Simulated scan of single mutants.
Amino acid sequence: MDVQICSLNSGSNGNCYYVGTQQEAVLIDAGISCRETEKRMKRQGYQWIK
């Protein structure tokens, strides 16, 4: 099982990390807006499922 870890944002304006496998994923310490999180996830190739 491959686990991917990606920093979507890290700085004084907020932190957000993606940790996931093909089946499951979590966002940790999402300190940026949902819109910005979705934009950065898309840029990295991750899909946001609502």
Results as ranks from 00 to 15, higher is better:
Met1Phe: 09
Met1Lys: 12
Met1Trp: 04
Met1Thr: 04
Met1Gln: 11
Asp2Thr: 10
Val3Ser: 09
Val3Ile: 15
Val3Met: 08
Val3Trp: 15
Ile5Met: 13
Ile5Lys: 00
Cys6Lys: 02
Cys6His: 03
Ser7Leu: 07
Leu8Ala: 02
Leu8Ser: 00
Leu8Gln: 01
Leu8Ile: 07
Asn9Gln: 14
Asn9Pro: 01
Ser10Asp: 11
Ser10Trp: 11
Ser10Lys: 14
Gly11Glu: 04
Ser12Ile: 09
Ser12Phe: 07
Ser12Ala: 13
Ser12Cys: 14
Asn13Pro: 02
Asn13Asp: 09
Asn13Ser: 15
Gly14Thr: 03
Gly14Ala: 00
Gly14Tyr: 04
Gly14Asp: 12
Gly14Lys: 00
Asn15Val: 09
Asn15Gln: 08
Asn15Phe: 02
Asn15Glu: 07
Cys16Met: 07
Cys16Lys: 00
Tyr17Cys: 14
Tyr18Met: 01
Tyr18Asp: 00
Tyr18Leu: 07
Tyr18Thr: 02
Val19Glu: 05
Val19Ile: 15
Val19Cys: 12
Val19Gly: 09
Gly20Asp: 14
Gly20Leu: 10
Gly20Cys: 15
Thr21Met: 06
Thr21Ala: 03
Thr21Asn: 06
Thr21Gly: 03
Gln22Val: 06
Gln22Thr: 13
Gln22Arg: 09
Gln23Lys: 15
Glu24Lys: 12
Glu24Cys: 02
Glu24Arg: 10
Ala25Gln: 09
Ala25His: 05
Ala25Ile: 02
Ala25Leu: 05
Ala25Asp: 08
Val26Met: 14
Val26His: 09
Val26Ala: 14
Val26Gln: 15
Val26Phe: 15
Leu27Pro: 06
Leu27Trp: 12
Ile28Gly: 05
Ile28Asp: 04
Ile28Thr: 08
Asp29Val: 09
Asp29His: 13
Asp29Phe: 07
Ala30Leu: 06
Ala30Trp: 02
Ala30Gly: 03
Gly31Thr: 08
Gly31Trp: 05
Gly31His: 04
Ile32Gly: 00
Ile32Trp: 04
Ile32Leu: 12
Ser33His: 11
Ser33Asp: 11
Arg35Gly: 06
Glu36Tyr: 01
Glu36Pro: 04
Thr37Pro: 00
Glu38Trp: 00
Glu38Lys: 15
Arg40Ser: 03
Met41Asn: 06
Met41Gly: 02
Lys42Phe: 07
Lys42Val: 03
Lys42Thr: 08
Lys42Ile: 07
Lys42Leu: 11
Lys42Asp: 04
Arg43Cys: 05
Gln44Val: 07
Gln44Met: 15
Gln44Thr: 06
Gln44His: 09
Gly45Asp: 10
Tyr46Asp: 04
Gln47Arg: 15
Ile49Tyr: 01
Ile49Val: 08
